[in-house]
Amino acid sequence: MSIWEYANPVKFLRLSERVLPALWVISFACLAIGLIWGFFFTPDDFRQGSTVKIIYLHVPSALMAINAWFMMLVASLIWLIRRHHVSALAAKAAAPVGIAMTLIALITGAVWGQPMWGTWWVWDPRLTSFLILFLFYIGYVALWSAVDDPDSAADLTSMLCIVGSVFAVLSRYAVNFWNQGLHQGASLSLDKETNVANVFYHPLLFSIAGFVCLFLALVLYRTGTEIRRRRMRALMAREVRHA
């Protein structure tokens, strides 16, 4: 039994049918717990007031925006090396989810920045990097939809994802160099000293778990959709040939 078993679309579909209901329930439960706890039962921060509650949306979505791209990178590599179609389709399925997460991170960040920094937007390194990530996502999705042949679309987008990852990291450093920012350091780290306070920390963990499960559920479901779409295409092509 190895993980490559699930490169078989039928097995993948069977597994995802089994896992998906649980995943949906877990993700909504975690989101509900984290967000309700965070929204109703945490105190205001002494400096940020009630805007600290935005953290339960901003941090998990920003985390998932980056992890979604990373997942696409891994899936692209698997496609290029082992030629498993499910992998390529999973990368395709993850991109719109990543766009949504990036969008949420940008919106909640802007809404938080307005009262705290006195401006919706600053060209701070972190903000700028996220905007660049957003552009990468859009280019990736546009390339998928522009190429007709599914296999070469998978090839080309995989290469774009890999090269894009290198340039995304480069941009991150370039942007850092270009402008020292207002943004605080990472909210989560293993170093207890710099971490956010415990009252905010526990609901945040639930919220992050909820976002992670939601991402997994969405990607599994969308990958299933893509597999069925591919199969339909193949069937219709055969029908045309028989006719």
């Binding site: 660049i132 552009l135 546009a142 774009l160 340039f167 480069l170 941009s171 450093y173």
Partner: peptide, 13 residues
Amino acid sequence: LLVVPLYVPTLIF
């Protein structure tokens, strides 16, 4: 659309 994000580091420096 594809190339512009790749140009960012070059443009910045």
